[in-house]
Every structure is written in structure tokens, then in C-alpha cells.
Nucleic acid binder design. Structure first.
Lengths: 188, 188, 188, 188
DNA sequence: TATGAATGAGGCTTCATTCAT
DNA sequence: TATGAATGAAGCCTCATTCAT
């Protein structure tokens, strides 16, 4: 999101992006406690290179989260176009569980506020995410497909819960997400 | 659960119970990464005493979980008596969120399968928990208060999700749990 | 100086004293940049043991300095008895150079204020040292063997200089200290 | 001192001189442990440029010392002209303390032989410095303003001590230097 | 040639576990 | 048996030096 003062050299930018992707996968595989050295090894770079781009482990983790949240925002907005206002919210919720399959421990930890406060560490990403979620919810409420006695923050909490379910057991999560979604629809 | 060959001396049994309680609180406060020394300090014993009762940190954690799951089983069964078959399941779900308020990181981590696989580590506790949950669900389904297209494993996943919501934001969790419960009720 | 709340176990006290002594020698030999692991190795203990007694490298260094300053204070006071008021100050100055022979880098660094501010880190030791130095100076001034236009702080600065000379070249330091001492005597 | 085979291009020579000056200031501010990157940053060049001119950190440090010693030699010689033989030595000593005011850690460390042996690393600078100091001392001895029972090496040790005093407390150093100088004057 | 990115060894510190008291 | 001191393997991070751009 934030542009660095000077654009990175081509090779540095490539390394940075590679570290970010590998870090996402590695956190997802192993959880937040995975050593930085392991991420560096998987990315095929020295540990120093990771630290050049992300000065602390927490900064790396925050960058991963911000990156992923940015993608989620894009996904959510795209769904509003492709699915229409009535179903975009629900499809978004389901897509979190379906697409981001394999145990996504790091992200869940982060969304649930473990260890790192996303709202503080990456406020722009957090705000953009909340704005997108608010739009999806409002669209669904206006379309009459979502109950009106909830707000964006409730949906965000539920989303965290779905992520946790998915980490707990991806096979079950799909059906359980359906149950939760039924709870979000208007009564009757 | 497993009884030692010889019953513990009274003071040893007292120490064991105290460590178990303190460990629960400490994991809840600080997460799984809290040092054993901190637990020993809070319990007012030496680190060696903790290791006498629980041979590894993982064994201690597993024992904490098994202990808590045992209490949950008792709670669930009691609710079946006090609340009746139709509402016991929902009250149980709400009570997890309400009673076990303050961030209960350790338990959520465990239930979600982080780091430790409860089903393997404490199979008896896991089985008892599942049995109780199955009873609550069947009772509700027979009473017509829960939809019939879900099974115990779905409810367990949802329960994990509710725990995660509660860890994420206890204030929101109560209302969000209501939404989820609405999803569990029969359609229409 | 400060007594711990509970007295250490005998073996722990022995280890602590040993680490303190070895750390002094090692800092003196190698300078402040010597790794803690090297000190642990020389002391025949694990690195963890050093950290149990001194929570950071700086704390270890401060403790070494405070310990040495305490010994200096004792030495100075003893000289006042054995040498009499007129010569105790000068004998003390010489003894710093003679006794504490081999390059005492760490101590010089500390006295000179490099890296660590002794006055802040070990204020009691610093105060006791200044008090002792003030007594030696006053005694000499009253005995007529030291000039009256200087105060304790000047003497402390000169002492730092002598330590530096000694670190620079112990062989030369003895004669050069004699020159400096001549400068401290009353004119004519 | 040593001239490169081919004279440097004008911009390269400018860079070299700039790095040398900035390195002096930076070592003086931060001590020998300052990273090369910090020096490069302050000089407005890349780290690679520093390494092009000085193949190791030690070489850079040595060059800084040699450069400064060269300036001291020039200063000392000039004082012999301007102050006359009787006072040049003492004025030189005072000027070290007064002019090179602000904590000059790097230089003091070096003169005192910390980490680097100036006599080995920059023997020409060391020899020229000693020669100059010998001239100042001899001039003062012949003028009758310095005692005759000391030689150049004693004065060098004392100079090191004065530098250390100045690093310890610049405010005190001026008066304390006066005391030391009194010690250098002939008795009576 | 200048730049600054990459490397990787090494330092400080933590903490699960063992063991002497 | 209870204590808490000792151990030592890792983990995070820094920085001298090399090298691709």
C-alpha cells in the first residue's frame, strides 16, 4: 500500500515480493512461531535479506497480513460486481473458507488478535478491510438478504470465527459456514 | 483422568491441582508461549515441582485441556437437566462465551488444534466431550429446536469458531454468538 | 553492596562470585566486546548461568565495576590507616597502576564513561568511591602534601588518566604516574 | 601517506577525503563499534564506496588515525614556531584537550591501543608523531621549562592520559591538564 | 566507478528440561 | 519430595564484507 520513497531496485523488489509470499505460506504451514531462518531458507535468501526488507519478525508478519488483507479487499469488491449486492457478502465469507484452504494459522492468529494487533500495526489495511466489509453488509441488507440488526463489526467477528473453524477442520468448515450464513439472513 | 499407580500424598495432590488451575489461568492470560517458570512462580512452587507432576510442557498443557473439557462435559450435562433438552445446547454455547470470558487463548489454541492435537493427546476427554455434545444436539433436534441437517462435528466446529470470536473481541462475541445460534435453529 | 532478599544457595553464591571474577579478568583481557559465551566458557559454566545471575551483559559489566570500585574503596581507606594522611592519596594512585597491572580495559572504559555510565548504573559504588577519594584528598591537603586548588573531581579525572596510561603501556605508566603525582603536590 | 600507483580521479579523491572526515567524526561520536553503513550514510555514499577506498573497517580506522596524527604533527611543529621552544610542548598538550573537545572516543581508543596498534598499523604516522613530540620535549628541556628526567615516551603516555581525561569529562579536563603540566615542569 | 542489496557468521538472550542441594 | 540453579540448544537480530546492477 504505502509506496517507499524511492522505488526498489528490480532485484530487491523481486526478493521482497518473494519473501512476502513465502512468509505467508510458511506462517500458514507452521504458525507464528516459525523461525525467520526457516522463512529465509524456503525463500532461498539469507536471513539478512529478510531483515533488510522487514526490520523485525513482527514487521514481516504485519506486512504479510496487510498484503493479504489488501487482496481480501480486492476480492470483496470484485464480488460485489460479479455476484451482485444480495449475495456478495455470503460468497465472500464462503470464499475465505474455500480458497484459503490449507490451515492458515498465521492469518487466523492475526485476525483474532493474537500477539499482534492488526488495527494498530497496519491501520490502513484494517480500515480498508472494514470499509469493504461494511459495503458488502450494507448492500446485502438493502437487498434484503441480510438481517438488519447486525453491523460490520459483528460480521468481522463472525468472519474470524469462520477462519478459526477452517483452521480447525477444513472439511467441516464448509458446511459449518453455511450454518453461520443462515444465521446472517433475515429471520423467517 | 488416568489415575497414578499410588494415590498422591495429600500435599502432592494439592500441589498438582494448584498447578493445573494456575496453568489454565496463565495460558489464558499469556498464551501457549508463556514460560514454565512463570507458571511455577504464579503457583508458588519451584519449576521442578511442575515437572514432577507433568513431565513436559505439552503434558501440562494437555492436562489443562483435559481438565477443562471435563468441566465442560459436566456443565453440558447439568444444563440438560436444568434447561431442558430444547435449550441446553444453545445455553451451553452461550455459556462458553459468557463464562469463560477474558481472553482464553490457551484453550482456543488447543481446541483449534494449534500446536497440540487434543484428540490424540487426551482421547478420553475428547471422546467424553464429543459424547456430551452429541447428546445436547440430539436432544435439541428431537425437541425441534435445532435443525436436523447437522451433526455433532458441525457443532464442534461452530463452537471453536465462537471461542475464536470471543478471543477476538469479547464484547462483540455475545451478539455474534446469537447470530450463529440462529443459524443452528430449524429453518422457517 | 545491596543484599539480595534471600541469601543465595551456597553453590549459586559460589558460581556468582566465580562469574564476577572471571568476567573482570576477561573484560580486562579482551575489552568490553568480549562475548558472554567466552566469559561463561572461562568460568566453566553455561551461558544461562551467567544470565541467571546477571540479566544482561550490561548488568554483568556494571556488577564487575561496582565490585571493583568497592575493593578500591576498601583499599583507599586501608591506606589512610597504613600510610597516614599525607601519603595515602599518592600511594593509592600508584597502587592503581602497580597492582592492577595487566591491561584493564574494561575498567578504564567504565571509569572513562565509555558505553556505560557508572554513576547511573551503580550509584552507590560511585558515591562511595567519590567519598573515599574526597577523604584521601582532604587528608593530604590538611597534611600539606597536596595542593589546595583542586577538588575530588579533579583527582578522579586524573585517576582516569592514569588508568588510561597504564592500559596504554604499563611499563611507562609507573614513571608517568610519578610525574602526575608531582603535579598534585603543592607548588614549590 | 602512501600514494596510490595512479592518482585518483578528482571525484574519487573528493569521496575519499569526505569519507575520511566523516569517519573521524562518526568514530568520535559513536565509538569504534559504529557500523560502516552509518559512516557511509553520513557521508552520503554507498557502503561499497567506503570499501573501494578502504578495504576493511580496520583500514579505514587506521587511515583516520594516521590522518589525525599527521595533523597533530603539523600543529606541534607550528606551535614550535609560534609559541617558542619553552611553551610549545605545554600549549600542544593543552590544545589536544581544548581543540579536540567533544568526546573523541575513536581517537582515544586508538591512541590507547584499543583494538588497533597504531605503531604497527600506521608506523610512519607513529614515527612522525614521536619525532615531533621528541622535538617539543627537547626544546622545552633546553629552554629549562620541562624537567630533564623524562623522555618522549613518558610524555606520550601522559598525552594519552590527558585524552582519556578529556573523554571522561571535558569540563574537568582543562584544569586537570594544568595539574599534569605542572608535574612536567622542573622541580622547584 | 558508485550503489545498495545479499550474505552469513556470530552475538545476546530465552527457556524447556535436568539435576544437585 | 520440593526447590531453584545449571544447562545448552535455538531464536532474533546486527553488521563486516562481497557482488550484481
Amino acid at each position: 500500500m504505502a509506496q517507499p520513497a524511492r522505488p526498489l531496485r528490480a532485484d530487491a523488489a523481486r526478493n521482497r515480493a518473494r519473501v512476502l509470499d513465502v512468509a505467508y505460506e510458511t506462517f500458514a504451514d507452521e504458525g507464528l512461531s516459525v523461525p525467520i531462518d526457516e522463512i529465509a531458507r524456503r525463500a532461498g535468501v539469507g536471513a539478512g535479506t529478510v531483515y533488510r526488507h522487514f526490520p523485525t519478525k513482527e514487521a514481516l508478519f504485519t506486512a504479510v497480513i496487510a498484503d493479504r488483507m489488501g487482496r481480501m479487499v480486492d476480492d470483496g469488491r470484485a464480488l460485489l460486481e460479479s455476484e451482485g449486492p444480495g449475495e456478495a457478502l455470503f460468497t465472500f465469507l464462503r470464499s475465505l473458507v474455500l480458497q484459503w484452504g490449507a490451515a492458515d494459522r498465521g492469518l487466523v492468529d492475526a485476525l483474532a488478535g493474537y500477539g499482534i494487533d492488526v488495527a494498530c500495526a497496519a491501520p490502513e489495511a484494517e480500515d480498508a478491510f472494514k470499509a469493504m466489509l461494511g459495503e458488502l453488509l450494507r448492500a446485502a441488507q438493502e437487498a434484503g438478504t441480510a438481517r438488519r440488526d447486525i453491523d460490520m463489526r459483528d460480521v468481522k467477528a463472525i468472519l474470524v470465527g469462520c477462519q478459526a473453524m477452517q483452521a480447525y477442520d477444513s472439511a467441516l468448515a464448509e458446511r459449518a459456514t453455511g450454518v453461520v450464513i443462515d444465521g446472517l439472513r433475515p429471520p423467517r
